[in-house]
């Protein structure tokens, strides 16, 4: 019955005087068009927010935490770069410092692109399941303690070389673990790409560190 009515309604409408019917259609069309534009603009405003990670996402957590993690690698590398007498270690330190500082730039820029704060309210490692226990005195996996850093700053010669390589080796292992986990959990291709490059580069550097460590301890 109802469908009958509507169909005949639609069919009958044109039967009457065409002029008023058309203008009514015209108003309806304009109204629909305007509504469509408004709705489209609203969706356009909103959809990018749904497509980029939110502030409590794995991606945001990883970028913030890895920025802090990287910053300490830069700190240690700068100490070794300034203090080591071994050319191979000075070069490695420069490589680590420049690469990781640049990667901090990538990570911070993405957070900014996503309209997120560079720092968050979440505790360290909150983005990684079952990782809360890995944070000791605020330090993420592999990070050197304030005491270790103080000792490194005072060290010279062979002591500096050995301490730097040992600390950086542990730091890389922690960083690789975090990056692998992020790659697994994140659905963002940029984050996956950077995390993967960290894993590859730092695994390679660990081999180099092992070689340099043998030389340093022998020397």
């Amino acid at each position: 019955m109802i469908s009958d009515v509507t169909s005949s309604d639609a069919g009958a409408a044109p039967e009457e005087a065409p002029a008023p019917s058309r203008s009514r259609f015209g108003y309806a069309a304009v109204a629909l068009l305007l509504a469509g534009i408004v709705l489209g603009a609203a969706i356009g405003l909103v959809v990018p927010r749904f497509r980029t990670p939110g502030t409590d996402s794995v991606e945001a957590g990883f970028l913030r935490d890895m920025s802090t993690h990287h910053a300490q690698a830069v700190e240690m590398a700068m100490i070794a770069h300034a203090g080591s007498d071994t050319p191979g270690i000075v070069t490695l330190a420069a490589d680590i410092a420049t690469t990781q500082q640049a990667q901090i730039g990538y990570m911070q820029a993405w957070l900014r692109d996503w309209d997120l704060d560079p720092t968050g309210d979440q505790p360290a490692m909150a983005w990684m399941p079952d990782a809360a226990g890995s944070v000791v005195n605020g330090l993420m996996p592999g990070m050197a303690t304030p005491e270790q850093l103080a000792t490194l700053r005072k060290a010279t010669g062979k002591q500096l070389d050995v301490q730097f390589l040992t600390l950086m080796r542990a730091h890389h292992l922690g960083g690789i673990h975090m990056a692998q986990e992020a790659e697994e959990l994140s659905g963002n291709k940029d984050v996956d790409w950077l995390a993967d490059s960290m894993v590859t580069a730092q695994q390679g550097e660990i081999q180099l560190i092992d070689d340099l460590l043998k030389q340093a301890q022998a020397g």
């Binding site: 019955m1 005949s8 309604d9 009958a12 039967e15 009457e16 008023p20």
Partner: peptide
Amino acid sequence: TGQGKPPAKKAGANR
């Protein structure tokens, strides 16, 4: 149906 609106409301009416 020259009278305008009325026909539009006719249920199931054939022409």
